[in-house]
Amino acid sequence: MKDLVLNILRDTRPEFEFNSEVNFIDEGYLDSFDLITIVSDLESTFDIKINGSLIVPESFSSLDSIVKLVQSSKNAS
């Protein structure tokens, strides 16, 4: 799952290395409109629906937080 998420992040922002040391939001890797394309890609890749109230910057601050979001969305559906 992590690799698929990483591919989505790299496709959205190819200019950044999405490693685990960086907070993607604080460092300006992702803005609110990037989150929208990422949500769309996550939903189609993992066949999930992400609850709108979970689409907040904190859910996208790291690879682990995004994986957690996908897993909780899978469990909810």
Binding site: D31, S32, F33, I55, V56, P57
Partner: peptide, 21 residues
């Protein structure tokens, strides 16, 4: 801005994540 959009103080601006939430 950090995302690459160009706007002035005369233009409409929104905090997209806050409004969405």
């Amino acid at each position: 801005d950090v995302a690459g959009n160009l706007r002035s103080l005369d233009d409409l601006v929104m905090k997209g994540d806050q409004v969405f939430n």
